[in-house]
Computed example of a mutant assay.
Amino acid sequence: MFLKLLLTSVSAFAAGAFALPATSYALQDTYDYTNWLNKFTVQNIADPTHGFVNYVTEAQAQSLGLIKTIGSQVYMGVDNTTILDPNGVGRNSVRLQSNPSYNHALVIADFAHIPGSDCGAWPAFWMVGPNWPNEGEIDIIEGVNLNTYDQVTLHTSSGCVPSIGPGGQSGTPTGNSDCGAGGGYTGCGVVSGSATSYGTAFDANGGGVYATLWTSSAIEVWYFPASDVPSDIKSGTPNPAGWGTPIANYAGCNFDAYFQNMNIIFDTTFCGDWAGAVWSSSSCSSMNPSCNAYVAAEPQSFGDTYWLVNSVKVYSVS
């Protein structure tokens, strides 16, 4: 009798009756050309990163053509025609924040084009909580000047010191272990190993998808060139378990204590605390010793400094 029960149990296990429940992902929000400005607020604010930029209002952005739909895609760009005073207000651009906020999510962003690798430019696609840095920040796409390698970074209050999660990561840590170092400004970054993960190289490769999974136990970011997007993402039934090694795989931090109520942000600034800070050590400085002066005098350099978004989809995690 015992043997019969044992064999029955083994058979049931093999059939999956005792398997752990799989994580499921239900579509929560879709941001696309049909609802973009209903789902995002255009932020006419001073740049928190001290860039040479003028974030315009929604009405200004539309009248200037800085936000528009092109077919079934959303365009968000910058002024690329006006010569400016380098001591003035900065180049017109847009910054958007999602109206919904999230606690845990799978965020899948599909891009036809992201801002190019342009001297002075500092674009970013990211998430942030309202009480920075205490409710966290996840930088998903970010780079400056002539970068072609994306950098993923977490910013928190002091004490979140992640390890690399199971399965590893393909990116390289920037060297700082505490995501709250420098009052949160330094963060803990991971640089992608893919030469097409950012900027001009990303665009020349046909665009692609960034997927970010945020749970209690991990924050992971994947990049897929357009030619390699998993079929489950295309079909709307995402399954990160089958996606392979992410760029960044943060584990070992109490993420629920450091990341809360996060909104999605798009912005493109110029110079400022990063692009400006490294200007003198980049080849860009050979064209002008001043980042602000270069950005002011060379509007034509920013013709490809724009986002062209197919969609951003947010899935709940359960």
Rank of each mutant, 00 (worst) to 15 (best):
74 V>R: 06
74 V>D: 07
75 Y>S: 13
75 Y>K: 15
77 G>L: 11
79 D>T: 04
79 D>N: 15
79 D>L: 12
81 T>L: 14
82 T>Q: 13
82 T>R: 14
82 T>I: 11
83 I>P: 10
83 I>R: 12
84 L>H: 09
85 D>I: 12
85 D>S: 15
85 D>T: 09
86 P>C: 09
86 P>S: 11
87 N>T: 14
87 N>H: 13
87 N>W: 04
90 G>K: 03
90 G>I: 10
90 G>W: 03
93 S>V: 14
94 V>H: 10
94 V>R: 04
95 R>W: 09
96 L>A: 14
96 L>H: 00
96 L>Q: 14
97 Q>M: 13
97 Q>Y: 15
98 S>C: 13
98 S>D: 05
101 S>Y: 05
101 S>K: 14
102 Y>L: 08
103 N>F: 07
103 N>C: 07
104 H>K: 15
104 H>I: 09
105 A>L: 13
105 A>G: 08
105 A>V: 05
106 L>P: 03
106 L>Y: 09
106 L>H: 02
107 V>Y: 08
107 V>A: 11
108 I>S: 02
108 I>N: 04
110 D>P: 08
110 D>F: 02
111 F>E: 07
111 F>H: 08
111 F>C: 11
111 F>T: 12
112 A>F: 04
112 A>H: 10
112 A>K: 09
112 A>I: 02
112 A>M: 07
114 I>T: 12
114 I>V: 15
115 P>E: 02
115 P>Q: 07
117 S>F: 04
117 S>L: 07
118 D>F: 02
119 C>V: 06
120 G>I: 08
121 A>C: 09
121 A>I: 07
122 W>P: 12
123 P>W: 00
123 P>H: 08
124 A>T: 08
125 F>C: 05
128 V>F: 00
128 V>D: 04
129 G>A: 10
130 P>M: 10
130 P>C: 13
131 N>V: 11
131 N>D: 15
131 N>Y: 14
132 W>R: 04
133 P>R: 01
133 P>D: 11
133 P>A: 10
134 N>G: 09
134 N>V: 01
134 N>W: 10
135 E>R: 00
135 E>P: 10
135 E>D: 14
135 E>K: 03
137 E>G: 02
138 I>R: 00
138 I>V: 15
139 D>L: 07
140 I>W: 05
141 I>M: 05
141 I>R: 06
142 E>N: 11
142 E>A: 03
143 G>V: 02
143 G>Q: 03
143 G>R: 03
144 V>Y: 06
144 V>N: 09
144 V>I: 14
144 V>A: 07
146 L>F: 08
148 T>C: 06
148 T>W: 09
149 Y>S: 00
149 Y>F: 15
150 D>K: 01
150 D>W: 03
151 Q>R: 12
151 Q>A: 10
151 Q>W: 00
153 T>D: 03
153 T>Y: 04
155 H>L: 05
156 T>Q: 01
156 T>H: 01
156 T>F: 00
157 S>W: 08
157 S>H: 06
158 S>N: 13
158 S>D: 06
159 G>E: 02
159 G>H: 08
159 G>K: 01
160 C>M: 06
160 C>R: 02
160 C>A: 06
163 S>V: 06
163 S>C: 10
163 S>F: 04
164 I>R: 05
164 I>F: 08
165 G>L: 01
